[in-house]
């Protein structure tokens, strides 16, 4: 995973609550077996309906998505994270994320920033007034800077370190191989097994 330390970029305001992952990337894109190439599916239906904020020229090239509350609800599809990344986003800001989306984002290196709804509103208003405004999202200081205002955010330390260093979660876990083996040795004998398969 690419490390995330500090990111500066322009932001686009998506004034909708409850943006579910079916809207972020429709299910027909989930038939693919690759991990990239999802940008054209991002918010496909809303883009097709026209006049969608992401397609307004003043927001072209934005890398920070400012979203309403309950972003990423619904399906567990990690393709939602991949699609946002493929479209150039590095950060999503919301007052509340769905749990699975947030986990997926952290795994993939898309930074989910939780700010209070007033702060999100402040940022949205700032970029609506002046779309060229740049935001700086600093994961070292856990702070978003925008036009002289700054907003602190929190992220659990372990996830923050993983992002800062771009660490591979699986390799980290495999350090505990002995403990996993010991746990396996103590598992109850009746726990279910899928093999041999029953016919």
């Amino acid at each position: 995973m690419e490390p995330f330390t500090v990111h500066t970029g322009r932001a686009v305001p998506l004034r909708r609550s409850n943006v579910d992952t079916d809207q972020i990337i429709p299910s027909d894109y989930l038939k693919r077996v690759s991990r990239t190439g999802f940008a054209d599916g991002l918010f496909r239906e809303w883009r097709a309906a026209g006049d969608f904020v992401l397609d307004q020229p003043e927001y072209a090239g934005a890398t920070v998505l400012l979203a309403g509350p309950d972003f990423g609800t619904g399906s567990s599809r990690e393709h939602a994270v991949w699609a946002l990344q493929d479209a150039g986003f590095r950060v999503v800001v919301s007052s509340r994320f769905a749990d699975i989306f947030r986990n997926n984002a952290l795994k993939g290196g898309l930074l989910p920033v939780v700010l209070g709804s007033d702060a999100v509103e402040g940022l949205m208003a700032a970029v609506e007034t002046a779309p060229q405004t740049e935001l700086t999202v600093d994961l070292q200081r856990c702070q978003v800077d925008c036009g002289g205002q700054n907003y602190r955010f929190e992220l659990e330390e372990s996830a923050r370190q993983r992002l800062l260093q771009g660490l591979d979660d699986i390799a980290l876990t495999l350090r505990y191989e002995e403990e996993i083996l010991a746990f396996e040795a103590s598992r109850l004998s009746w726990k279910p097994k899928t093999i041999p398969a029953i016919t």
């Binding site: 990690e78 699975i100 986990n103 997926n104 979660d169 699986i170 876990t173 996993i180």
Partner: peptide, 17 residues
């Protein structure tokens, strides 16, 4: 429910942080 990166994690380690 988990995402695809977590699926890979479980396949590889049978554990999940």
């Amino acid at each position: 429910g988990i995402g695809t990166s977590e699926v890979e994690h479980v396949l590889a380690t049978q554990t999940l942080p």
